[in-house]
Simulated scan of single mutants.
Amino acid sequence: MALPKQGIATATIRGSDGQDFTLAVPAVLHGERLHISADHHSTLRFAMHSAGVENAELEFSEMEVA
């Protein structure tokens, strides 16, 4: 079983005006499941709704913990 990895989930969203913007939130990857806190998930959903986007692809980047 894989250990959870801490990192950042990044979504690049194109707004209805054609402008791209990127959101990054803290996340944990456990196996194939990406876990984001309710507050950060709400932030992503609000930004997507504001941009008129219903779906976005998230990219996970692992952070090294010292």
Rank of each mutant, 00 (worst) to 15 (best):
D39I: 09
H41P: 01
T10W: 01
T22Y: 00
L58K: 07
A27W: 09
V53E: 01
G15V: 03
Q19F: 04
E57L: 15
V25Q: 03
H30G: 11
A2C: 03
V28A: 11
A56V: 15
V65W: 12
A66E: 12
G15C: 07
A66V: 11
T22G: 00
S16K: 13
V53Q: 11
G31F: 06
L58D: 00
V25I: 02
V53W: 08
L44T: 01
L23C: 07
P4V: 09
N55A: 12
G15M: 06
A51E: 03
A51L: 04
P4S: 10
H49L: 10
A9Y: 06
N55P: 00
E59D: 10
L58H: 00
D39F: 09
A27S: 06
V25K: 04
L34V: 08
G7P: 08
H41T: 10
L29S: 05
M63W: 12
E62C: 02
E57W: 01
F46R: 15
S61I: 06
T10E: 06
F46L: 13
K5N: 10
I8M: 12
A51K: 03
S50L: 10
F46Q: 12
G31T: 08
H35N: 14
V53D: 04
G18Q: 13
G31V: 05
F21Y: 11
D17A: 05
F60K: 00
I8S: 02
M63H: 12
F46K: 13
L34Y: 04
A9W: 06
R45M: 13
R33T: 15
I36R: 00
H40K: 07
H49S: 14
G52I: 07
T12F: 02
